[in-house]
Computed example of a mutant assay.
Amino acid sequence: MLSNIITFRYKIHNMKKLLVPAFILLFATVFAQKEDYMDKETIYQFKVEDLYGNEFDFSTLKGKKILVVNTASECGLTPQYEGLQELYDAYKSNNFVIVGFPANNFGGQEPGSDEEIAAFCKQNYGVTFPMMSKISVKGKDMHPVYQFLTEKSKNGKEDSEVEWNFQKYLVDESGHLVKVIAPRTLPNDPSITDWIKS
């Protein structure tokens, strides 16, 4: 009888030894699948139109760090165009790119057509980084790119709201959102330049 109890306890002990690693493996597999799913949600899924009516495919930016920014021509922060261009000039050879999205969501400060915006950017600030066609960055008509940038369920990082013109979203070399930068933070702020150089 005693030997049977000892044998039974020994079997239970061995089963625990086997079950614990099995549960760990199962958890790791489920977690990996979740991570796998999140990996599919990248900025590379989007194709948009630039200011000149040409298709712009985000998948062509694989391997680059991307700063996405919503812009406006009649805002108190509009001079940030100059800083953005300087940032682009300084780091574009280091696998870095800026993608601008004009938007009229704040105070009607981007009323112009794509043609007018393109002329304004070129004439006033010599902008050469990619500028997209005007979109909405909040509300019911929010563009899918900004749905991705602002919704954790899509970007896997965090929920956010575009507060004003010139809010910046930093996207890594794998197409994942890594940081949201407030509108008033200048393009040459260390929170941006240190990230580019890292």
Rank of each mutant, 00 (worst) to 15 (best):
K168W: 01
F106Y: 06
G156N: 07
V48N: 04
T128D: 09
K134W: 08
L51I: 13
L87T: 08
D50P: 00
E161H: 11
F58V: 13
V180Q: 00
Y169N: 00
C121N: 07
V97S: 02
K134F: 14
F120S: 12
N188E: 11
V127F: 01
S133A: 12
G156P: 02
I66Q: 05
M132D: 00
A118S: 15
D159L: 08
Q109V: 08
A182F: 13
V171S: 05
F148C: 04
A103E: 04
T78R: 14
M131G: 04
S133K: 07
T150F: 02
V48H: 02
T71I: 15
E161D: 09
C121P: 04
Y52C: 15
G112T: 09
D189C: 11
Q109H: 04
S133H: 05
E74L: 14
Q80V: 05
S73V: 10
S136V: 06
G126H: 05
I98Y: 15
F106I: 08
L186T: 11
I98A: 14
Q167C: 14
T71S: 05
D141I: 10
F106N: 15
N54R: 08
V180E: 01
V178S: 00
A119T: 08
D114I: 13
Q123C: 05
S160F: 07
S113K: 15
G63H: 09
A119E: 09
Y52P: 11
E110V: 11
I192P: 02
K122C: 05
D57I: 12
E55K: 15
K154N: 10
N94L: 15
A118P: 04
L61W: 00
N165S: 14
L77P: 02
K122Y: 09
E86L: 14
I66K: 06
D159R: 14
S191R: 03
V178G: 00
L186D: 03
K179P: 03
K157Q: 12
S93D: 12
V180G: 01
V180L: 01
M132G: 00
I135L: 12
K154M: 13
T150I: 09
I181K: 02
L177V: 15
V99A: 05
F120A: 12
N155T: 06
P130M: 10
G76T: 08
